[in-house]
């Protein structure tokens, strides 16, 4: 009888531990899925999550929102993207994607994606779509925040609005044609976004959800010079 009871208790314990492990993994997975990039997006503040939530691809750590009262430095650049109607003016720096992802290193600048279209001094000099990407934080203070409605309902830009990209050689004005939201997983395969079209400007940012939740969509703004 005892010989029989001993393995049964161990088995029960193993089963319980296994169940606990599965449950923990499931709960953890739910937490991860809620944002698709929790550890990265929040600056790896949770060591457990950071250790276990390996993303499907390698992503560089995303900048964290600074504590209240801290002002982030703004990089200097002689290339700027401005939206006069929104009072937005961001320096623009080059960024070479790594691992198939756009990971802007700062919150206070926009980045043109290399080796695609470069900012040019005149529309006719363009040889590819110019992609500008910047973070959105939902705070209204950084990156492409001005392009997002504060209630998360959509973009503040609409067809006909003007976006300017200035360089030392000149400024090119682009007219917004449309905006579109893409699930983050769909963006790489959205041919219309990645079509090489000289004279076209594409602004990319994340569609920031409210309540501090991680972004699951990208906002893309298409404009033509």
């Amino acid at each position: 009888m005892r010989g029989l009871t001993r393995p049964g208790r161990r088995a029960a314990a193993v089963a319980a531990i296994t169940a606990l492990g599965i449950a923990g993994g499931t709960v953890l997975a739910v937490g991860l899925a809620d944002g698709d990039q929790p550890a990265a997006a929040i600056g790896s503040v949770d060591p457990v999550a950071a250790a276990t939530a390996a993303p499907p691809r390698e992503e560089a750590p995303q900048p964290a929102l600074p504590p209240a009262g801290i002002v982030l430095p703004t990089p200097s650049s002689d290339v700027h993207v401005t939206v006069p109607a929104l009072g937005m003016d961001l320096p623009v720096l080059p960024l070479t994607p790594r691992g198939g992802a756009i990971d802007p290193p700062t919150l206070t600048a926009a980045y043109w994606i290399e080796p695609y279209g470069d900012p040019v001094g005149a529309a006719g000099e363009s040889d590819n779509t110019l992609y500008l990407a910047a973070h959105s934080t939902g705070t209204g203070e950084y990156g492409f925040d001005p392009l997002m409605e504060t209630d998360g309902g959509g973009s503040t830009l609409a067809a006909g609005d003007v976006v300017e990209v200035s360089t030392p050689q000149g400024t090119v004005s682009y007219t917004v044609e449309r905006t579109k939201r893409y699930a983050k997983g769909e963006l790489p395969g959205a041919t219309e976004v990645w079509e090489a079209a000289p004279g076209r400007l594409v602004l990319i940012t994340c569609f920031q959800r409210g309540g501090g939740r991680a972004s699951t969509e990208n906002l893309v703004i298409f404009a033509e010079s």
Partner: peptide, 28 residues
């Protein structure tokens, strides 16, 4: 085509994701 990691997530106490992560990790 590229992914775009152009969002940030504010760290807020009790946010759903953080709580779930913490709970899951604790269970593990």
């Amino acid at each position: 085509g590229l992914h775009s990691n152009t969002g940030v997530e504010a760290v807020e106490a009790g946010s759903t994701g953080t709580v779930a992560v913490a709970a899951g990790a604790g269970m593990l």
